[in-house]
């Protein structure tokens, strides 16, 4: 594999609680707690997990919007951790973020043109002043918007169109990597498909690599080459699409897959159901040992005492953080359907 465009080593991000001048820190939110990731050029890495698992924080740290508490992010071979000010801003160009909520991620007082042009005003070397307007129109066209609408304000657009504006803004800097933080979760199904297709097209045309973060397993499955499953700030399973969706080893991955609603009433009652009890514990005070053990049906003494490391399991590139991984795949038609079309 060619040199990775984005790499994270031992990434940790804690947020102090109640801290501040003259106030004692009451605790730490362990949002991201030791994550290693590698992203090759043109690759799509899906990250799935439930709310509070740290996937959004991970997105911000990867895009250098937040400084990690420990660990290092390397972009195209350059570690960004020690950069400050102008150099940091220069380095951020290669990794751009697409936000979840198209209603809040665009400045309501700026026209679409001003929003997409802002990157050029910050990085003046990108395009000479005279070319900027043309570049903005070109970018709007690339994401499927009518460039004649560039004088409009965000509220005059629908959710899907706003998301396209956000993507155009991110593309202006010619990034190598787009970190998409739940880019379609706020959109309706039909619009969601438009954006998913757009992201796929851009990946092919511009040779982009994606970190695609979502709680929606089916969207991630559609787009991702490799998938990382996060639970309480840690990656609990990582592997190719086939490994994770059909040969899941971690009980949490298995529960997620089983809970994923499948749009086929014929499968009702035919799928193996794993309904977890309880909800993810608080990242302020994660359980000792394996952080999943309080909800796990296989947990034993060892799981309660000793946190499992993410270790290679079965094929190449498939790793699971579980003391007793077992192969499992969602029973019923999902698999049959796939083999039928292959």
């Amino acid at each position: 594999m060619s040199a990775p465009v984005l790499e994270a080593r031992g990434l940790v991000k804690y947020y102090p609680i109640g801290g501040g001048p003259l106030r004692r820190v009451a605790g730490q939110v362990k949002a991201v707690d030791g994550v290693d990731l590698t992203l090759g050029p043109g690759e799509t890495l899906g990250i799935v997990g439930e709310s509070g698992c740290g996937k959004s924080t991970l997105a911000k740290v990867l895009a250098a919007l937040e400084r990690p508490t420990a660990g290092e992010v390397t972009v195209c071979g350059r570690p960004v951790g020690r950069l400050r000010g102008r150099a940091l801003r220069r380095a951020r160009r290669d990794v751009q973020l697409v936000f979840q909520d198209p209603y809040t991620s665009l400045d309501p007082r700026m026209t679409i043109e001003a929003i997409v042009r802002e990157p050029f005003e910050i990085h003046r070397d990108l395009a000479p002043r005279g070319d900027r307007r043309a570049r903005v129109r070109e970018l709007l066209e690339t994401v499927g918007l009518n460039p004649d609408h560039c004088g409009r304000y965000p509220h005059q657009f629908s959710g899907g169109q706003r998301q396209r504006v956000g993507i155009a803004r991110a593309l202006a800097l010619r990034p190598r990597v787009l970190v998409c933080d739940e880019p379609v979760s706020a959109l309706d199904v039909s619009v969601q498909a438009q954006i998913v297709n757009l992201l796929e097209r851009l990946r092919d045309e511009l040779d982009l690599a994606y970190v695609f973060i979502s709680h929606d397993l089916s969207v991630v499955q559609h787009l991702a080459d490799r998938i990382a499953v996060m639970y309480l700030g840690k990656v609990v399973e990582i592997g190719g699409e086939d490994d994770v969706y059909r040969n899941a080893g971690h009980p949490y991955t298995q529960a997620l897959l089983s809970a994923m609603p499948v749009p086929d009433p014929g499968l009702r009652g035919r799928r193996e159901e794993i309904v977890l009890t309880g909800e993810p514990p608080s990242p302020i005070d994660p359980p000792r040992g394996c952080s999943f053990h309080p909800r796990c049906w296989k947990a034993d003494e060892r799981c309660r005492a000793e946190p499992p490391a993410l270790t290679a399991w079965r094929g190449a590139g498939h790793a699971v953080a579980c003391h007793r991984p077992e192969v499992w795949s969602p029973a019923g038609g999902t698999e049959g359907e796939v083999s039928a079309t292959r």
Binding site: R89, R92, Q96, T104, S105, E118, P119, G166, L173
Partner: peptide, 14 residues
């Protein structure tokens, strides 16, 4: 805390 402020930082605004 709006996302468009984070977005501005993301494209390198000081």
């Amino acid at each position: 805390n709006s996302e468009y402020i984070a977005a501005a930082r993301g494209i390198g605004a000081g």
